[in-house]
Amino acid sequence: MSEVQDELIGGLQTKAQAIREDIIKMLAEARSGHPGGSLSSVEIVTALYFHVLRLKSEDPQWPDRDRFILSKGHAAPLLYAALAERGFIPREELLTLRKLGTRLQGHPPWGMVPGVEASTGSLGQGLSMGLGTALAGRLDRRNYRVYVLLGDGESQEGQVWEAAMAAAHYRAGNLTAVLDFNGLQIDGPITEVMSPLPFPDKWRSFGWAVREVDGHDFQDLIAAFDWAKTIHDMPSMIIARTVKGKGVSFMENAAGWHGKAPDMKQTAQALAEIGAGTDFKGDNKHAE
């Protein structure tokens, strides 16, 4: 690994740490929300916002920007934290999550929060919206790319597969989906509740280019995002193996932490385990 690469990954790790810290603080302050699936996607979303996506935080509507749609909308704290760290919204606002009058709704609302690209939260809908935006980009001859983050439990929704079929049919090469494969949903392991496996075979048979990665390994993730950009005649799927609740020992691999906030004691422990972050501006050479 080159020195530049070392520096990039070190920076991303620092950013991920800060975002994890934000997530825990936001959920503790809100006293409700979804830690498990927010923490499992931290590296995926950090890699996107601080390395992959071409964005201008001072111009959130920049027509040529890459789009990120959080289809698993319950990971809203993660999205808001990334948007704050990336300069789209003030960091102080993060602690208003889920409170009356806030822009930071329990699930991401389009049109209210700069940088939020679609209203999500009702599972299974983000890929369809991503497809529409991708097809519009092709019509307009813009070279932006659209990234959609799906949950593994979410993959039980039929609409996901309708969208998978349509994206392959229309050869949406500018559409990349990432699957947060943490293996757990509210009621337990996905294989016990309603198995959507095997993921790679399913997506391949639907006409997608598929690559499997370690969803907490930045090197792996960055290589996969680079790979996705080289595919132009079909949509691409990055299946990211992750750990639900990653980074907080008592939340890891515990379905019970899908949708509940830590109390004061648990918050202190979680923050201690995550460790304090330093201020990193990111190595987003495409941005600004």
């Binding site: 679609a118 369809s128 919206m129 529409g132 309708e162």
Partner: peptide, 14 residues
């Protein structure tokens, strides 16, 4: 369902 979601995506892009 996908048609309505895709329509929403088109609208998001103007």
């Amino acid at each position: 369902q996908n048609m309505m979601g895709t329509a929403a995506g088109f609208a998001l892009a103007g």
